[in-house]
Design a protein around this nucleic acid. Structure first.
Length: 378
DNA sequence: CACGCGTGGCG
DNA sequence: TCGCCAAGCGT
């Protein structure tokens, strides 16, 4: 009563384990990709790469990682950087709280651990943004500790290898996989072994059309033996993104544009953007209305023409966007800090998520397009 | 446990 | 074209 649910998982015997470790490590030595974070075992570089790789493909991460390392070559450089500069380096990579957590954790390492990434499970896991997987990856890859590192790849590989039908979206399933991983990971080359399983998942044991024909563990794969590799892993389907109607305001004052820094919590936290309103499209009528949002700012805005409409899909929201010109009629007071008038040069210093970069290009294209049409008509 | 949190690539 | 996904974490 009151104790944790026991994890039941049958473990392979020692001879089998020794054998598959050898095979997998040999395959890894022959087939591993040369990746920028594999050049050395600097815990800082491993850490940054693991944060970037969360829910993100290797090919997407590579250029971001290179630029990030040029800008912040070591942990102290990152700790001393301004948050704006750090966010700018993450611009376009998504899941922006990752980098704010990383920045905060790196400062913590400077303050508490003399700038050295801690190497105990408790200390690493306590770092902001570092969960069980990332802790295991850092400890095994950078510090050669025989810790499991169970991510989506590993769960897919294990699900097939051992024919496990548990839903991998469940926490209890991941715990089970961690028990397996802890059993399989060798005392030496722990990091290579963990990366070998992930590399196998990325290159061979892929989500669709796994390349079983060239798989180094085919002979011991339960799913292949039963012909069920296409049905594994079991995973509950994600809910589709919820549609939302959003109005985005393009408000100019001479050469300047009105920008708003988004809240430090929630969607696109801490990023800069254009003034954005949900579910007010009916109120955005060219020629008349003034929204309450701008009234509070002492800003009197008349809606102008609709510059364009587009859609932007987040993981959980589908924004149906109407980009509307706003015409400043009067200004009463100074703007609060999260609001700024910015010209085009200053804009390049700030970090914007893609949804607003699309708005910029649409607004600017639209301006050129209009003058082009006018030129022809007149 | 379920949900919030981005983006780009691929079949 | 579009649904599905990819090296998760915080709450």
């Amino acid at each position: 009563m009151g104790r944790k649910k026991e994890i039941i998982v049958s473990l392979p015997d020692q001879a089998w384990t020794d054998h598959v470790r050898e095979g997998l490590l040999a395959w890894y030595d022959q087939n591993k990709r040369e990746l920028p974070w594999r050049k050395n075992k600097d815990p800082y570089r491993i850490w940054v790469s693991e944060i970037m790789l969360q829910q993100t493909r290797v090919d997407t991460v590579i250029p971001f990682f290179e630029r990030f390392m040029d800008k912040f070559p070591d942990l102290v450089a990152l700790a001393n950087a301004d948050e704006e500069e750090v966010l700018k380096a993450w611009e376009g990579l998504g899941y922006y709280s990752r980098v704010r957590n990383l920045h905060s954790a790196v400062k913590e390492v400077v303050a508490t651990y003399e700038g050295k990434v801690p190497s105990t499970p408790d200390a690493v896991t306590q770092l902001k943004g570092v969960g069980d997987y990332t802790a295991g990856a850092i400890l095994s890859i950078a510090f050669d500790q025989p810790t499991p590192a169970v991510d989506g790849n590993v769960m897919r590989v294990f699900s097939r290898w051992f024919a496990l039908w548990d839903d991998i979206a469940k926490l209890s399933t991941r715990r089970k996989m961690e028990v397996l991983g802890a059993h399989l990971v060798p005392a030496s080359r722990a990091g290579d072994f963990n990366q070998a399983v992930m590399e196998l998942g990325a290159l061979v044991c892929t989500p669709v059309n796994p390349k079983c024909i060239s798989c180094p563990v085919q002979a011991t794969c339960a799913a292949f033996d039963q012909g069920v590799q296409a049905e594994l892993p079991q995973k509950k389907k994600a809910k589709p993104p919820r549609p939302v109607h959003v109005s985005i305001a393009w408000i100019r004052r001479g050469e300047q544009i009105l920008l708003q820094r988004r809240s430090s919590e929630g969607l696109l936290a801490g990023m800069w953007g254009l003034p954005t309103m949900e579910n007010v499209q009916d109120e955005v009528v060219p020629g008349d209305s003034i929204t309450p949002l701008f009234t509070e700012l002492g800003l009197f805005v008349e809606w102008g023409e609709v510059l364009g409409e587009y859609e932007h899909i987040f993981s959980h929201r589908r924004w149906h966007i109407r980009l509307v010109e706003g015409l400043i009629r009067d200004e009463k007071k100074d703007l609060p800090g999260e609001w700024r008038w910015i010209n085009e040069n200053e804009r390049t210093q700030l970090a914007f998520p893609n949804v607003y970069r699309k708005a910029f290009s649409l607004a600017e294209k639209r301006r050129k397009g209009l003058s082009g049409i006018q030129g022809r008509l007149l």
